[in-house]
Design a protein around this nucleic acid. Structure first.
Lengths: 219, 219
DNA sequence: TACTATATTTAGTCTTAGCTAAATATTTGT
DNA sequence: ACAAATATTTAGCTAAGACTAAATATAGTA
């Protein structure tokens, strides 16, 4: 697997939920900041290797094998992110770029030992689950804060958008994973929310709420 | 800098002592397991970028800039080796391959923080010095065990050959960095040595001795 | 349903970094 | 000093992965 092949596989996985859905040539091109024609070329090559299912004009999905590879790359990416935050004191908005490089390092031993060093973490710094060695996923039952009705609330467990700008915004506003959040009011006009977070109250836009994952309080 | 360019620069540095000496096209090709014609191509490209001094048929040396880049790559390589051994329990014969990949990761912050995590090590697991951020080297006054006269001795501080096979041999024979070694006899016939190592005595070939660096006991 | 807009693929080109074979320099040995 | 051996460079080819422009398929709408 070349670096480039791995990146295509990973992107196909991310766009079609877990690579099961067929995704369009254009969506891949857009996501990877490349041209549709380049995507077609690569997709043909991946189809040759039985990593994707591809029929002209019908979109692409991952095969069993392709899925395994995607999960492997994602596992590496997320473990490195944990490493960068836990061991090297990176902030959660700084890790992505570097992890994009580190995820392509080839060494099973390296990644197993890294996993051990980090004490087998289940989630990365953005709350995304880390696949285990066999590609097993721990899906959480979480919903977006924008879906929580007035009066409801829970623990903030993840972000949907993990762009640096969003993460920096959260830092600036003292919103982080593990925080207890309650929805106090929803503004009819623009969908903005008044939330209780810890001891404080805050007004946040609908867009913010639509990018925070909440685990509802049990029972 | 592409990965390939970095590897050429690094090789030129290693062959000509610190890149000062002009090295031949063929020696680069041999070291990198590639063809002389490929070396010529790349060397021209590096000369364009002012990273090497190159005159047709006269060999190659590093410029100031080329030297800086070489030291940066070597710094990264050796720091990663320390990380693999210290934090992930790799053995010293396993680190090279993985470090060859890790040395090309681009992030100043990453390498500075890694340095800090490892407590600013001065030497890698094979006893080779780690350049500091500005390319500063701490050269040790060390000599090869094969150069030590009968009766002399000191501390084993490094290996010249760091191939996996040699390092495994040393492990098998309980010879490691930090060991105190004394030369008791040198066999005329084949140059093999009888050495005292800790409490024990051992017979080793000239070839082994010619690949162990010794720091002579002071005064 | 037919026409138009959009999505996708094909064909041909470029760059990087390799290669082989042939040409040319340099070095060495007598 | 000159021929033979060796080292190096040049020329032309290849594969991966990208691009542009042109061709073709699909989808949306009147």
């Amino acid at each position: 697997m070349t670096r480039s092949e791995e990146n295509y596989i990973k992107t196909i996985f991310h766009i079609g939920r877990q690579g099961k859905e067929a995704v369009s040539t254009n969506s891949i091109a857009e996501q990877m900041d490349t041209k549709p024609s380049s995507v077609t070329d690569m997709v043909k090559k991946l189809a040759e290797k039985d990593l994707v299912n591809y029929k002209k004009y019908q979109g692409v999905s991952l095969t069993e094998m392709g899925n395994k590879i995607a999960l492997g790359v994602i596992r590496k990416h997320r473990l490195w992110e944990v490493f960068l935050v836990e061991k090297l004191d990176f902030s959660w908005d700084e890790v992505h770029e570097v992890a994009e490089q580190l995820e392509h390092i080839k060494s099973d031993k390296l990644i197993d030992r890294l996993d051990r060093l980090l004490k087998y973490p289940k989630y990365d710094p953005h709350g995304d689950p880390i696949p285990d060695k066999d590609g097993g996923f721990e899906e959480r039952d979480e919903i977006l804060l924008s879906e929580v009705p007035v009066g409801g609330g829970g623990i903030c467990v993840g972000v949907k958008d993990s762009s640096a700008s969003f993460l920096k915004f959260l830092d600036k506003n003292n919103i982080g994973l593990g925080d207890h959040i309650q929805v106090l009011e929803i503004e009819e006009f623009d969908g903005s929310l008044l939330i209780g977070i810890g001891e404080n109250q805050k007004q946040i836009s609908h867009q913010i709420a639509a990018n925070l994952y909440i685990k509802l309080k049990e029972e």
